Simulated scan of single mutants.
Amino acid sequence: MPDYTRPGVYLDEVPASPQPVTAVSTSTVVFVGCAASGPVNQPVLISGFIEYQRQFQRSAKAEPPGQPDAMTLAVMAFFGNGGKDAYICRLASANDDNDVAELTVNDYNQFYQTVLAALNDYSLLLLPGQHWQRSKHAQSNAVISASLAFCQQQRHCLLLLDLAADIQLSSAAGASAVGLPASSYAALYYPWLTITNPLASGMLTVPPAAVAAGLYCRNDGRYGVWKAPAGVTAKLIGITGLAFTIDDNIQQQLNPLGINCIRTLPRVGTVIWGARTLAGKTDTEWRYISVRRTAIFIEQSISQSLQWVVFEPNDQPLWQAVRRNISNFLNTLFRAGAFQGSTQQEAFFVRCGLNETMTQQDINQQQLIIELGFAPVKPAEFVIIRIRYALSPP
C-alpha cells in the first residue's frame, strides 16, 4: 500500500480476482512400449519424429532397413497425421532386446503406478506393439486391460487400442466374439492401414490407433475437443490403402458395438467414419468420444486451476469466486460452440454454497463441494433428409 502523504492522484495496482480457470492441453499423447534405445522408465517429451529418431533409435548405420519396430511405426504415424507433442516411455524387457512381446503386465503396471501416475499433462495413451487378440488369455489382452484400468483410475486419459492385424471383422457376431472391453475410456479403430515407407523402399502396414491420435490433435487444434474426430474433415494423411475394405453393410453392424471404421469414400479420400467409445449399450451417456474427452478436458482444467482454493476460508467470498471463475471458463466454451443450448442457463450450471452443495457438517469437515453440469454437443451420426413432392391435382 503506498504512503499517501500529499494531496493528488495516485495509481494503485489492485490484484485481480483469484486466478481464472485455464484450459489444459488435449493434444499430448503417451506411447508406452519398447524402443531401440533411449532412457528407460522415464517419460521423454518430444515434438517431432526427427527428435524421436535422435533419442530412441540407433544410428542409421546400425539400424537395418525394412520394417520399423512397433514404437517407431506408431510415432511416425502419429506425427505424420498432425500429432504435436508426445511422451515416449521406453520399457525394457527382461533381455533388453526391444521385443515388446517380452514385456509383462507387471512391467506396465509398475511403470504406471511409479512413474506415469505422477504425470497429468496428457490425454491419450497408446501401447505400440500390444494388439487385442481373439484369445482371452493372450498376454497382450492382459496388458491392454491393465492399461485401461489405469485410465479409468486416473480419469484424465483415453486409451486407443488396436486389434491384431489378422482379425477381420465382417459381422456383429464376429466382432462380439472378439470380446472387446467395455469402457468409455477406450476407443478402437478398424482396419489396419498401408502407407509408403518413408525410411526405406516399399510399403508398411500400420495399426490405426496412432494415426487416429494424430488426427485427434489436428482436430482439437482446428475445431476443439468437443468436435467429433470423424467425418469428411477427418481425412487421413499419407494412407495408400486399407487392409480390409469396409462397406455400408459391415459398418452398420460394427458401429453399434463402438468399433470406429476407417473408410475410403469417393471424392473424399480415406477418413475416419466413426466417433464412438467402447462404452457399450449400458453406458450410453458416454457413447461418443467427443463427449468423454470434453468431460475430461473440463474436469482437468478446473481441478488443475483451483489449487489456489486449498486452505482458503470456506465461506461466501470463496464460493462466489469459485462460481465466477468456473462460470467464466464454461461461458468461453459455450461461445466457442462446445455446448448445446441458446443461453448460458441452457448450456451449463455451476453450484457451490451452503445448503446448495454443502451442509454445515461438510464445512466442519473442511470440504468444499462444487457441482457443475453441461449439455454436450453430440455428433449428427444419422442425417435424415425428408423430401416431399407436391403433386398437382389431376
Rank of each mutant, 00 (worst) to 15 (best):
R293W: 04
R293N: 04
A295S: 15
A295D: 10
A295C: 10
I296V: 12
I296S: 02
I296H: 03
F297L: 05
F297D: 09
I298R: 03
E299H: 06
E299P: 11
E299M: 10
Q300V: 02
Q300D: 08
Q300S: 09
S301H: 01
S301I: 11
I302E: 03
Q304A: 08
L306P: 00
L306C: 14
Q307R: 13
Q307L: 08
Q307E: 07
V309P: 05
V310A: 06
V310M: 01
F311G: 09
P313D: 15
N314K: 10
N314V: 15
D315L: 11
Q316H: 08
Q316G: 10
Q316E: 14
P317S: 15
W319I: 03
Q320M: 12
Q320W: 02
A321P: 08
A321T: 08
V322F: 10
R324H: 14
S327L: 02
N328S: 15
L330F: 00
L330W: 07
L330D: 12
N331E: 10
N331S: 15
T332A: 12
L333Q: 10
L333K: 12
L333G: 01
L333V: 08
L333N: 05
G337F: 07
G337E: 04
A338P: 05
A338R: 01
Q340M: 04
Q340C: 01
S342F: 03
S342R: 12
S342G: 11
T343W: 05
E346I: 00
A347D: 07
F348T: 00
F349T: 04
V350F: 01
V350S: 01
C352Y: 00
C352N: 07
G353V: 08
L354F: 05
L354Q: 02
L354K: 03
L354W: 06
L354Y: 00
E356N: 02
T357S: 09
M358V: 09
M358H: 02
T359K: 00
Q360I: 12
Q361I: 13
D362S: 00
D362T: 10
I363C: 02
Q365A: 15
Q365C: 05
Q366K: 13
Q367K: 14
Q367I: 14
L368V: 15
I369L: 04
I369F: 06
E371G: 12
E371V: 08
E371N: 13
L372H: 11
G373Q: 04
